[in-house]
Write a protein that binds this DNA or RNA. Structure first.
Lengths: 202, 202
DNA sequence: CACTTGACTACACGATCGTGTAGGAGTTTG
DNA sequence: CAAACTCCTACACGATCGTGTAGTCAAGTG
């Protein structure tokens, strides 16, 4: 494990259980009692350590945020095109992604801030990379949403592939599918221009 | 309105309210009483017409499915590249998309079947269109997930854009951002090939 | 007229939720 | 040694959930 030693305390087990259950079932779908049972403690201890469900979610937000930023820095060190390689996005971030998506959908400001930060990063990156979309902000926002989409629809995507995408193999497979969407141009610039004009007429 | 005359009955109002609230708050987040209040009826009438919350959701699934397939046929008649134009995807399908995404995340088989059907369609279309991804199924699944991603993260995307994407203008803007992701190749075929080899080594 | 039927409401039920309270067990601290 | 503190459990509370039951009202129908 790459975690600090004191991270096996009951408090940490509760937080890990919360991240997992919140991510799988959504915030409303996972009760304090479910989380306590998953962590092997009483429901009262959850309250003792975190105060309330809302505070527990805040703690999970902060934890997931820090861990994701750690991974982000690792990827930044790797640098360049390699950062797009799905296999380097190790499955250890999967539970965190699932949680953050759920938390975001539930209105978490921390998770939303992470999303906005990602949009900013993509915007800067696309500029440095020499890409010139019509609306850079919209382009970056769409790309940020895309990166999370397979987490939201993991059950459906797994079913479509006949392979669980929570496994490294399945994750690599759908990751490659995503990559090739970025790789293969679907329509030419001329066709795109036509569409832009047509939509402006409406 | 393009609806049948008898579609303004209390039953229809309940179903419309359910689609709206389920889509906005999720299945668990919208109670029978909320839906009844939104439709301006008693909670008992919801049960009278639909029997249970589960049955109400099934009815919403079926309704949303039929309406979406209607739109799908309209788009098929329009044909070709025009089907990618975000402005032709009229905002009237927005509540239905929101609902179906939520229902899908809640494990709806009807909604999941719609997703799988979309993957099939994209697979066939990409073949006819002359696209040759490494893993066509994964490519199609990723693209299907992508098309729904902006609905899931509508709040975050709206915040990133500083513009509500549930409005036709915002919808067209993010739709164009999506389109340009499909248009502008990010990495060359050679780079993609390198990534494929590298991921196979792991 | 009496009778049936369907739309609709009011109200009560058990279950489950987040939360609050009281207290036990073990360690630290004066 | 005793007081204080932390970790932890057991249990009860009000609220809200989906659901069940009884009954009102209006529109046919014989």
């Amino acid at each position: 494990m790459d975690r600090p030693i004191d991270d096996l305390t009951a408090r940490a087990r509760i937080r890990d259980a919360a991240v997992r259950l919140f991510g799988e079932r959504g915030i409303e779908g996972a009760s304090i009692r479910d989380i306590a049972a998953e962590a092997g403690v009483s429901s009262g201890l959850v309250r003792h350590h975190f105060g309330s469900k809302e505070a527990l979610r805040d703690a999970c937000d902060e934890y997931a945020k820090e861990r994701m930023l750690e991974v982000g820095e690792e990827l930044a060190d790797a640098g360049g095109v390699a950062a797009l390689d799905p296999a380097t996005l190790h499955p250890r971030v999967f539970p965190l992604q699932l949680y953050l998506v759920r938390s975001m959908m539930d209105g978490s400001e921390t998770a939303t801030a992470l999303f906005l930060g990602a949009v900013d990063s993509i915007e800067e990156w696309s500029t440095a990379y020499g890409i010139h979309p019509t609306d850079r902000r919209a382009y970056a926002a769409a790309m940020a949403a895309i990166k999370l989409s397979v987490f939201v629809f993991r059950d459906q995507v797994s079913k479509a592939l006949g392979e669980d995408i929570t496994t490294p193999a399945g994750y690599a497979r759908i990751g490659q599918g995503l990559m090739e969407i970025f790789t293969i141009p679907l329509i030419t610039e001329e066709q795109a221009e036509q569409l832009r004009k047509r939509s402006e007429e409406n």
